[in-house]
Design a binder for these strands. Structure first.
Lengths: 156, 156
DNA sequence: TATTTGTACATAGTGTCCTATGTAACAAGT
DNA sequence: ACTTGTTACATAGGACACTATGTACAAATA
């Protein structure tokens, strides 16, 4: 389309704007979750584990949409911080079963409330429809990006 | 609003979705900029410097919307990689003037084209209006987040 | 059964961003 | 001129993500 990109343009790019928005969310959530002893990246893992449907590192990574090494590192931090426990899987010698600690389980509802609250505040001034449209467009965008990344990066 | 957050909910949260989208953009751009010798985070800096209006670390940080230490680290990497040069500011002993190297300036237009192309592809299937609406909602969201972060984190 | 292929995880190294804190230079007010 | 406050940057340390690569176990196949 446009082979030239000026100062004003870069800042209005979807790529840059989503980055700014994501970092805003992260900073806010970080600040609010810290008193509860959680980090931003841990929440998807905690919620997935709470229901007990997901137990392995592989499934957690797919659920949270991060790569396997990122999840490995995340679980290491979470284990260090007493949020999870890992026990060897009896049926598969390569794998571990991940479980929430009682302490983490106890604090989780509060964290979810805080996060939910933050999302609502971030959407202040949005009508119900606007919020829905925004989410729907975001999901379509993500679908496109998934395809592009798959082709470009040569994943899987 | 809702004090309970189930497995399905977390994934549809604006916070999580923007994070996924931002990482998708980053991975894609990363892969495409790498052959040109640029990283994702460098582009805002390069574009700002190209026009010559912004020269100091402080202004670059404000422009790219990252914190000062992040920009310091970024400039260090860019200097290491031969993208920029720093010369002491004659009028202010604390500050440095940052300038593009010729090599970086030469490769910049190609990088901008690549980035612009990626943004277009990410918006595939979006009507013109949808794209505009999306950007506009994103900006409003960012405005809200800025306020929230300012209050919560206690910036400045 | 032996070999090959695939899967789950670990490790190493890096990029990008953050907060917290220190230091040196400038600017203002007394 | 001197103190005080502000500003620009540096440094330390950590979170969270990625790619690239190695290893051990499982599954499939010859």
């Amino acid at each position: 389309m446009q082979y030239r990109m000026s100062t004003s343009d870069v800042l209005s790019t979807p790529g840059h704007l989503t980055s700014v928005a994501a970092r805003g969310f992260a900073r806010l959530s970080e600040a609010r979750l810290k008193p509860l002893g959680f980090g931003v990246g841990t929440l998807p893992v905690l919620v997935a584990l709470e229901e007990g449907r997901v137990k392995t590192q592989r499934d957690l990574a797919r659920f949270a949409r991060i790569e396997q090494p990122s999840m490995a590192q995340m679980l290491a931090r979470m284990e260090r911080d007493g949020l999870i426990l890992r026990t060897p899987d009896p049926t598969d010698g390569r794998s571990s079963r991940v479980a929430l600690t009682e302490s983490a389980r106890a604090r989780l509802p509060e964290a979810c409330a805080v996060l939910s609250q933050g999302n609502d505040e971030a959407l202040a001034g949005f009508t119900e429809t606007e919020a829905e449209v925004f989410i729907s467009l975001l999901k379509r965008l993500i679908g496109n990006l998934d395809q592009l990344v798959k082709n470009d990066v040569g994943d899987r």
